[in-house]
Design a protein around this nucleic acid. Structure first.
Lengths: 155, 155
DNA sequence: ATGGAGAATAGGATACATTCCTATCTAGGA
DNA sequence: TCCTAGATAGGAATGTATCCTATTCTCCAT
């Protein structure tokens, strides 16, 4: 079993490299925000990260935490669990289906996979609890957004 | 190709039955909210549904729309796309992995599936755009919540 | 059909996560 | 060391979603 400390050290080194490669400045705040996230497996929310980082940087603002988390997610250095944050969206189709989600405009489309294994609850999930549903979430850029070009969200 | 009108009729009949079975009253508002959702495949948000239903029920309140959508989702008559609405949550683990999500307490755990097909982007997704990632989302009730018993969320 | 009890609704008030604004500061290259 | 674009702090603003409560409505029993 690897020491958790070493794992974080490794993650931090990789993070520094990635920031330099992508032209992001290595600020104290940014590093500590990432360190806090890399140190846990519980998928914390922004407020939790803010609270924890504040133990070491008492004056850090919530805006800095939100801004960095969003930026790092856009740069592919961390990920946002579930959908990118937008309003709740609903679906009357209760049959088995999967979702294609456009990360730029939020378009969601249903599809059914020919691959039946994507519709079976994996055994590994029983470690955590009793599963009731499973679906694939495919993230990407839809044709419309691709045609519009542009490196960022139209919004 | 089946007429869309017939599909909605069928869906409405099933909805009425389900409401009666589960002791939900068949109010005009509730029926129209469901009808609006059943008539589209675009996974609208609550505001959109509110706006559309208001064309036929001008005085319907946004609270009624929100309340019914949430209730119907809890009763399993419709579904909420993505995660149930909570704060954004982040993840520094960029390796391939899936998520188990407890629908009661919001716990999220990573796992890797032995089934490699769950890690391949389905061909069907290319219909909609260029995919960049795929992961399984397994919803269920975690052991902790199961032990605590109770039919509803602890919150 | 009619009355009553509890569920459901309308409308406004409220909560709260997230983002915006802007003056100030800092990392990193010249 | 100096400069500049990028980053931050702090507070204000935004906007989705929920709460509150008086009123209305559904549906079962009479």
């Amino acid at each position: 079993m690897k020491k958790p400390h070493d794992k974080i050290q490794t993650a931090m080194a990789g993070f520094r490299e990635a920031c330099e490669r992508q032209g992001l400045k290595l600020t104290h705040q940014r590093l500590e925000i990432y360190r806090e996230l890399a140190a846990t497996e519980e998928h914390p929310d922004a407020e939790t990260i803010h609270r924890r980082v504040r133990r070491r940087i008492p004056t850090i603002s919530q805006d800095t935490v939100y801004r960095n988390l969003k930026l790092l997610a856009e740069e592919g250095l961390i990920s946002i669990v579930g959908m990118s944050h937008e309003r709740l969206r609903f679906d009357a189709n209760m049959g088995m289906h999967h979702h294609f989600v456009c990360v730029r405009c939020g378009l969601i489309r249903d599809f059914c996979s020919a691959d039946s294994s994507a519709s079976t609850i994996p055994d590994e999930a029983s470690t955590f609890g009793e599963s009731v549903s499973v679906h694939l979430e495919v993230k990407g850029v839809c044709h419309g957004c691709r045609a519009r070009r542009g490196g960022r969200k139209p919004k």
